[in-house]
Nucleic acid binder design. Structure first.
Lengths: 341, 341
DNA sequence: TCCCGTTATGCAATCGATTGCGATACCAGG
DNA sequence: CCTGGTATCGCAATCGATTGCATAACGGGA
């Protein structure tokens, strides 16, 4: 079918090994520049494409990376995937993308299948705070975590400065005059849920505000769960004038809850989201939220993994935190005057 | 590192070739059932994983499929990707996902890189009505088109019955009392844009309505383009009471245009979208739209491609059309009485 | 002139699974 | 007892690129 090294060798009149060396930038200096030129011309003429299976068989490196995403339908992730693909592609690597649906069983099955494919490493967005699989996996593969981190093992990761992000949200609300601020927290098994919740308490305390009974955690990152959760919270504590949600879905669920109680957002209750997924500017109301640099997370993770691939030895575990920013839209406003003390 | 056929052979005391045959369902009948059992036990004990590169090198089949998506950030596509991955994965194939950003140059570059990876076939969501690349590619690979089809070459495809979808939209509006209906058409280079536009004219004619100057096509599937386009359309023809948009983005752009002209949707102008992307139920106003079966498109395309992979010979080109349905939400209502004739 | 070092290239093994072909053994029928 | 057939299995080549080692050529210095 396609031309091989041997074909080129025959055409140029040299040995396949020399062709291999000439075509490989890392070994081209071993070959006479004249023959390198001839080889390259012949290769181009026969539009030679190296067979990655043959190369991989010999070198046992597939130049593929397993990318494990909890839910591709969550618009948060395509942005990261894009960053990963760009950076990986430029380095000659191909991402193998899989989707776990947030199911640990599915995850371990897919990870096994990627291992069978002999990926050279993993980028995982599925970390849980306690995650046994990660420990096993990290012994056999280079791994980079994105978005979420793990507490059970220290692994290289690219995530967000959650403390900073939540602080932005709280300060924004505080600045608008809010004092009765609640938090719809994410699942506690997720570092994002946990860290943002911790950060909320700290940020509130920094402003002299209390959070007692004002934090309620969902068990899944879904609109429905947040709707229930926020409804309960507001009913039990009608003084609440603002909600910081641990991500955009939870914010949307909170808004649904507010609407469901015949109240209005932001007039009665302001809501801040987190992530700034696509379309958050055109939902009703346009969502004020903390924006995380999705592309950068992906490309930074890819770069990190690539660097781990070349320098096998280094034992340092690089944990990157990127800085989020606040995007103010229409889901937040001043609390109504009659509700202020 | 990992166990090989030779390792198993040594352990069981037979030749690697026999192990290979025992483990391959297609050739297992050539081996004594007793030894098959022994081999399987040993393989499991040593948790043997076949090396796909070695197998691929020998058989020149990579068990990977190139999946080419125009824009992963468009929430329409993750649904399809999911369907593809499920079906492909079940059959032992791995999708290699790439993103062209709707750029033909990027596309041909990525397709080349997937060819270099020796994919066994392609699923493409990037077809244009006139698309030279497809013809070349289809000579060397099995191909299935999704969502869009091509007119320049007859290729297997899985798409939507656009005529039916548009008819649903028009009939819905007609039933509400609308007579002055406009169409924001998609780019004409896309089969979806073209077919939906044709279908609009036909459906209108079936109701005795005219479309003269009521159809305006954008040059890209973006909210901004639709905003401009719809603004122009409504200004030039203020009698318009409803818009059928060729997809959800265009619908969102149309709504933005309506708002931008200080009018309201649906009170002043009703809007129908197409695709029913995630979150279309919570934008403002919740979008009435034609829903296409995203998962099914993906899984059906994967099934089709897999069948082409086994029966090399067949020359029949299967072109599947799936049936969309109408989801009624709040972006459509009766035209205002004073605007009726 | 001889020797040695450098440069350039050839040789052959290797990665691990697959598969056509040949060899062996065993059984039944003549 | 011999023969043809079948069930099992081994042998070895093969896929295409990589790479350690050997070899050859060549030039300069003693």
């Amino acid at each position: 079918m396609s031309a091989t090294l041997k074909d080129i060798a025959k055409k140029v009149g040299i040995h396949p090994a020399t062709v291999s060396r000439a075509l490989n930038p890392r070994t081209a200096h071993l070959v006479n520049p004249t023959t390198v030129a001839k080889v390259k011309k012949a290769a181009a003429a026969m539009n030679y494409l190296p067979n990655p299976m043959a190369a991989g068989l010999r070198t046992s490196r597939s130049h593929t990376i397993g990318v494990v995403i909890p839910d591709l339908n969550n618009p948060l992730f395509p942005g990261m995937v894009r960053g990963i693909q760009d950076t990986l592609g430029r380095a000659g690597y191909t991402p193998l993308l899989v989707n776990t649906d947030n199911d640990p069983d599915v995850e371990s099955h897919l990870v096994a299948s990627l291992s069978a494919r002999r990926v050279d490493g993993f980028i995982l967005a599925t970390a849980r705070r306690d995650h046994p699989l990660l420990a096993q996996l990290s012994e056999k593969f280079p791994i980079v975590l994105i978005n979420r981190v793990s507490e059970s093992v220290q692994l290289p990761s690219v995530a967000v400065d959650e403390q900073h992000g939540i602080r932005l949200a709280v300060e924004h609300l505080y600045g608008l005059g809010h004092r009765e601020i609640a938090h719809i927290a994410g699942p506690t098994w997720s570092s994002t849920g946990h860290e943002r919740s911790q950060a909320f308490t700290r940020s509130m305390k920094d402003h002299g505000l209390v959070t007692a009974k004002r934090i309620s955690a969902v068990t899944s990152w879904s609109i429905e769960a947040a709707n229930e959760c926020a409804t309960r919270l507001i009913k039990s504590d009608p003084a609440i004038t603002a909600i910081v949600a641990a991500n955009d879905q939870l914010a949307l669920g909170s808004i649904a809850a507010i609407k469901g109680m015949k109240r209005r957002c932001p007039r009665d209750v302001s809501v801040v989201g987190y992530n700034d997924m696509p379309f958050m500017d055109i939902v009703d109301p346009p969502l004020t939220c903390v924006r995380i640099p999705q592309d950068d997370i992906g490309s930074e993770a890819a770069r990190l993994l690539l660097s781990m691939l070349v320098e096998e030895g280094s034992t340092s575990v690089k944990q990157v935190r990127l800085t989020p920013e606040l995007i103010v839209r229409s889901s937040t406003t001043h609390p109504r005057v009659e509700r202020l003390q």
